[in-house]
Write a protein that binds this DNA or RNA. Structure first.
Lengths: 366, 366
DNA sequence: AAACTCCCCGGAAACGTTTACAAGTCAGGA
DNA sequence: TCCTGACTTGTAAACGTTTCCGGGGAGTTT
């Protein structure tokens, strides 16, 4: 015969049983009081008192098992050191917090194993939903995403037939904005420092760069193209190699980390920016504004993408039967001192605004 | 009479009951097979098959309720945009991953409410342990930390009597290293751009700065001290104010974000760094090496602190009865181009090493 | 052939919470 | 006085998993 357990759990922590026993009421009454629903004045007093005395704190796991929700949303990004993800995270955080939930972040390091392992672990009910921004998409990603027990929203490109909510931008168009800007400023030998071609963003930027040059009738010179990873050190090294063998009058970099690395190399080698070499980054992160001179950068709308992704996720959690949705955020170009000789002067005047139009236009920020 | 439930859970997802029924075995057998312990060849086959057919994925919440552990570790930091936390996070991640657990990060924004709410939510069993690096310590922090149901390790200063594992550095000594270095280089009018004095690091750095000046017999000139928050924009603005009313020959900044902001202001106002104004940051983050010229910076051992904090946490999870421990990591100074006129030249030579000695010494990185 | 060991299996309890349901109390109105 | 309704309370089931325990079958040893 199952004697009622009046003692705390094995690890010594009080449970609702402990509180109920101490207050001399049933666990149902104790639970009700602790959740603020019902109870006579006397019962409420006794339960509150007992809870305080034993230092009761509810077990969220047990509560979640019962309620089928945890109130947590996960965000998985490849590189948390990249400011573009920080910006995205802040936008997501704002939306998530306004729904009374909490955001937790996981850095995957861009490794396939880590990302799918994450999906398997966190998405198995530890969180109510998940936003993931994978840098590569493999079959195992695909399988893990569509088989996830909780809603997943993907930020970034994704095979067209994947039945998953998705927010993307057009980074090819973004690259085109930058090339147009440089060509309009009279630059003809445009160098390009890209990330790995086997990543989704790397491939898109490469295709965009070649297409944009073609549109302007400029032949592609492979000596003007360098590839590293998406980090600062790689940008610095890649720019050094590029300068060593070619003589660019402009440099387009696949993200701002690379661009800051390239800037370091340019300044070390006594090239004037923008007079000798114009420099344009991508992502338009705060790093672009920290650099001196401030960097022109292609905004891919990270905040907007993050915000929309979070909104889509909350909508889907509320109604799992919605059809999969796909949204686009248009790129824009923020022009700053690093690419305009007579334009915005290096660091004079008030700090440049971070705003950029959302419809693929070019804005000169002075 | 309780009829056995053979149907999937209310939301339609299969449970171990579904799999067991389909395979024609008991839930005990199904569970054993799914966990890889025991089972005849035939049973294993049938259960595996059934699980695959219905797309079974175990509910981690239910598992955790039973096993009393989630395999998750949380890290709470004030500002995830600050590279010092990124460095710390990477170190923690490495240790945590090697124990087979996963790290989740939460940015609190430095707000008291958010931090204590986090402790109440995540620490109530959603995670097996937590590392927190609060920028302010209030009574409610104190209460939440000591009352936490799961182990908590604090990175940073903490009242001496708090019975909690703690890893700290001596930022006063760190400030002293920087001042000594600047004075030795002949600088006499040393400006100081600090963070808010009601934060733990802000107060410690202020005290350290005044003590170090006193030790060198230099009177404190309040005009040479400015306060903002710990961000880039604040550093830029504070440096502008300081330059406006005083004429420093050196600038010490309370972290690297502030220092990069100050660098921007200095370069905008045509001051040569380091010839006119020597510049030293704190935290020795990658940002210090991205700047041009590269920034001298006081290393407060963020990686080492993160690593130790993670190790302490894992030890405590393994043995909750350990006495509270308190560990120290000594600061050191990385000298780079921003503070040495004849020394390490700006950006020439190979990239500077990130290593700094761990025993409070000064290292010139060339 | 009986006793013993080993393995496999199923029933049932347990983790800590919320909640449906039934039963009880009490006051007020017919 | 009896009925009705509002309110409170306790019992027990449920969330989905792991695991203890005992029963039973097959194989091995005396």
């Amino acid at each position: 015969m199952g004697r009622k357990r009046l003692q705390p759990s094995p690890d010594g922590r009080p449970t609702v049983h402990t509180v109920a026993a101490r207050a001399g009421v049933s666990i149902a009454s104790a639970s009700r009081v602790l959740n603020g629903i019902g109870g006579s004045a006397e019962t409420v007093r006794r339960v509150r008192e007992a809870a305080a005395e034993v230092g009761y704190v509810p077990n969220a796991i047990a509560r979640s098992l019962q309620s089928q929700r945890t109130g947590l949303i996960a965000l998985a990004v490849a590189d948390i050191g990249n400011p573009v993800y920080v910006a995205m995270m802040r936008a997501i955080e704002a939306v998530v917090a306004s729904s009374g939930r909490q955001l937790v972040v996981h850095a995957t390091g861009g490794e396939i194993d880590s990302e799918t392992a994450l999906l398997r672990r966190l998405a198995n009910r530890y969180v109510d939903g998940m936003i993931i921004s994978p840098i590569r998409i493999t079959d195992s990603h695909h399988a893990a995403i569509v088989g996830s027990p909780v809603p997943v929203v993907v930020v970034g490109q994704l095979p067209d037939d994947t039945p998953v909510d998705n927010v993307r931008t057009d980074s090819r168009a973004g690259v085109a904005l930058a090339v147009d800007h440089l060509v309009a400023a009279g630059r003809q030998r445009i160098g390009f420092v890209n990330g790995p071609l086997d990543t989704v963003p790397g491939a898109a930027r490469d295709a965009g760069f070649r297409a944009a040059l073609a549109r302007h009738g400029i032949p592609v010179d492979e000596d003007l193209i360098e590839i590293g990873d998406f980090q600062y050190a790689a940008g610095r090294a890649a720019a050094a190699r590029l300068l060593d063998r070619a003589d660019p009058d402009a440099l387009l970099c696949a993200n701002d980390l690379i661009a800051v690395g390239a800037l370091h190399t340019l300044l070390s080698e006594q090239r004037r920016v923008p007079e000798d070499v114009a420099l344009v980054g991508m992502d338009d992160t705060e790093l672009a504004q920290m650099a001196f001179p401030q960097l022109s950068s292609v905004s891919l709308g990270s905040e907007a993408r993050g915000r929309r992704a979070a909104e889509l996720l909350l909508e889907r959690i509320a109604d799992p039967d919605l059809p999969p949705r796909r949204e686009h955020v248009a790129p824009s170009l923020a022009v700053r001192a690093s690419s305009t000789v007579g334009g915005p002067t290096a660091g004079n005047g008030p700090p440049a605004s971070r705003r950029a139009p959302a419809d693929g236009t070019v804005e000169v920020i002075s």
